[in-house]
Design a protein around this nucleic acid. Structure first.
Lengths: 208, 208
DNA sequence: GGGCCTTGACTAAGCGCTTGCTTACCTCCG
DNA sequence: CGGAGGTAAGCAAGCGCTTAGTCAAGGCCC
């Protein structure tokens, strides 16, 4: 899932013009931020007139809400799938971090909006996204707590360590540049090693 | 340095109204973002009329530029001071991370502007801040590279690992809430341990 | 010391422009 | 021919910033 095309999230959105609006909004919000983006800019990126936005969405904020909601749901689904795939806490943490980081690199534009435009959301939409975020944090925290209980990890405080591990992935959205020399998969592998080290788990790939 | 009052950075700014504008702008930019903040809002926080802003600053962007510049300079000074204080690479890394993280917690409003409003800066101001950022990254990268050379650290790629270590601190600015249960100093100590683990250095405080 | 001018800090009013969004209308396809 | 998709034109509100002016504090000359 983390290695699909950046726009694959919107493949099911119909009609096509409505999808183009979403893609254009993601690009614009990620580049300049929600408040600095005009509805005219979004419409122009979709190749339509300013008024066309309101044929498909009731407001600019509704566009942001849909992007944030879809993005958060995708991130949560990815984390829960990784947790389910792993057979022990250390492997689970490695899989979660590798996929979470790779997703934030591949979908860095969507991730930018997801991570940094929470405050621009209307109240109800923000509450929905915040709830999904808590489930993501909870899944990682539980993985670390399991590892400590099974004595395959050491962490003074699973909640705080889980938050630090997630910070690593979230911050990728801020700096990632697809023109740079980091592939999402390689970055995910490196960060999985770093996370394993953070919880005192033995090396696997190495990070030598 | 990282444990001073959040507003201590502006203590030297005169006259007083000019300083109140800066503090108000930091608060507003941190809460809502640069583009969502109006000049009327900043002036109101300083207890002055909208036009008073232009008595002290040529533009809204100039206010942002001063905040970004001062903030970046403080962060660089803090990193360089920590590097100078440490006597070996591992201690240096611990000191840098502890202070960098504590600073991002204590000054989370300034740090928010510094880290997330780079794109809103005019070109020349952005170039200045970007140059300071590179020196911060360079200092951490050199510390990790020194540690690997001295065989007291293991890291596959000092540049990427340094970036990950800094991500930990930068992301603190995003989520830190002074009403929460994390003191800047305790957070710095925890993250220093996590960073030491990331580079394969033996524990000190423990993180058990 | 009294009159006079300069200076720095500040404001009321408002200009020109851009914003999110609406209205009235058009077009094309099943 | 009805409804979905689209547009040209424009409205009200809010934006960054300017203008023209007030006012108190301080210097200065006779």
């Amino acid at each position: 899932m983390p290695h699909t095309s950046p726009d694959a999230l919107w493949a099911a959105v119909e009609p096509e013009a409505s999808r183009r609006m979403l893609v254009g909004a993601v690009d614009a919000f990620a580049e300049r931020g929600y408040h600095a983006t005009t509805t005219r800019d979004i419409a122009a990126r979709a190749g339509l007139s300013p008024a066309a936005l309101y044929v498909h969405y009731p407001s600019k904020a509704a566009l942001l809400a849909q992007i944030s909601s879809t993005g958060h749901e995708a991130a949560l689904a990815l984390v829960e799938a990784a947790v389910a795939r792993g057979t022990d806490p250390v492997e689970r943490l490695r899989l979660v971090v590798a996929d979470f980081v790779a997703w934030h690199a591949t979908h860095h534009r969507i991730a930018r909006v997801v991570q940094y435009e929470l405050g621009a959301l209307p109240d109800d939409a923000r509450a929905h996204s915040v709830a999904l975020r808590r489930r993501i944090e909870g899944a990682v925290e539980a993985t670390v707590a399991d590892g400590v209980r099974a004595e395959v990890m050491t962490a003074p405080d699973p909640r705080r360590v889980a938050r630090a591990v997630l910070s690593l992935g979230i911050d990728v959205a801020r700096w990632y540049d697809p023109a740079g020399r980091d592939s999402p998969a390689a970055l995910g592998a490196l960060y999985a090693d770093l996370a394993a080290r953070m919880v005192g788990a033995a090396p696997e790939g190495g990070t030598q």
